[in-house]
Design a protein around this nucleic acid. Structure first.
Lengths: 188, 188
DNA sequence: ATCGTTGGCTAGGTGTATTAGCTTTTTGGC
DNA sequence: GCCAAAAAGCTAATACACCTAGCCAACGAT
């Protein structure tokens, strides 16, 4: 019985790769086990079950997206920052559609996920600072608006919701410009 | 063996009610059958299976949302139309979170769903007309932007993504105003 | 070398989806 | 009204998937 060298991290990473291929909702422990050439129950030595795995994917997605956004935002401000962060957001979601789909479904009371989400919000807040949006309440509104537009766009794109005959890239650029205008006039 | 009086419509309607209670992803044929006091396989006389049921829910959601938006938009233009349509969109999604979650996952090649989605897009296009956005390509971009923002907002709200300490209603109003500004300056 | 811990395994139970085939009810033509 | 055909329910059986329990081999520290 040679060992497969599993660990929680390895299992989650492979599950993330798998779910990006097959799509969210089609992730099964059976398939993950098969990838490792291991019997299904062996996975329970590393993760708590399917729900637990979902939650871990949510964490991975939130963390990775957060760092991607952070990278994209550094050294930029205003429209540049908006464009860069939006592009990074979309890239991550399109390259990792499976894990992205789990990002919003963390395990109940997952402190790490809360922190990872906070990182994302902080980056978005930083973008807003470049527009002079500072009032605490207003910042929350603007963050939610920005996040809604980005999430909505990529969610629709991933699910094939953009069927009309126009390049999605073009529409995304237009959306980013629209966001920029909305943020510039936020105080109005 | 008295009959239960099932039909495709009745089954789908009950499934829609159920999924709004338990949440998308927790819909099972077993639970639907139990609601009717009927054995599970009996459902197969009316729907083609779980996947088929999902697709039918997608159709119901798209149709009902479309008519709700149409009602909200009639007799309004500009910011009024935007506000009314946005409110109707959010209301439908919050009142029917389960079926809303299936709206974007129609059965492959579902012609009726395409038509129902077209109705939604048409209403949104009508809103844009009030802003003088007429160029065909530009209209598509604006529709996608509007839809992204609305979908993103309610998707985040339904999944509990708005955890910060500020009323979601307030943020939604701010988002609608931002959308209005972005649309007013669309040609810029 | 050994002993405890860890990481695999098999076996078994539960729940869901699905198909096959049977029976009863309803219905429609005569 | 009767009787055949269709429709709508059923039970039985299969196929997966998740999960738990408990066994045994491999590894690592002493």
């Amino acid at each position: 019985m040679p060992r497969a060298g599993l660990s929680p991290e390895v299992v989650v990473a492979e599950a993330a790769r798998l779910v990006d291929e097959v799509g969210p909702g089609r992730l099964t422990l059976a398939a993950v086990a098969q990838r490792f050439g291991v019997a299904l129950p062996s996975l329970y030595k590393h993760v708590g079950g399917l729900e637990d795995l979902h939650g871990r994917l949510a964490l991975v997605a939130a963390r990775d997206l957060g760092t991607a956004l952070r990278r994209a935002a550094t050294g930029k401000a205003g429209a540049d920052a908006t464009t860069a962060v939006a592009a990074a957001y979309r890239s991550y979601a399109l390259e990792h559609p499976g894990r992205y789909g789990y990002m919003l479904r963390p395990r109940a009371g997952d402190e790490e996920h809360t922190r990872a989400s906070g990182e994302i919000l902080e980056v978005l807040g930083g973008v807003l600072a470049g527009y002079g949006i500072e009032d605490p309440g207003t910042v929350v509104d603007a963050i939610r608006f920005l996040r809604s537009a980005l999430h909505g766009f990529v969610a629709l794109e991933i699910s094939g919701g953009f069927a009309m005959d126009r390049p999605v890239d073009t529409s995304f650029e237009a959306a980013v410009r629209a966001l920029d205008r909305a943020l510039r006039s936020w105080s109005a």
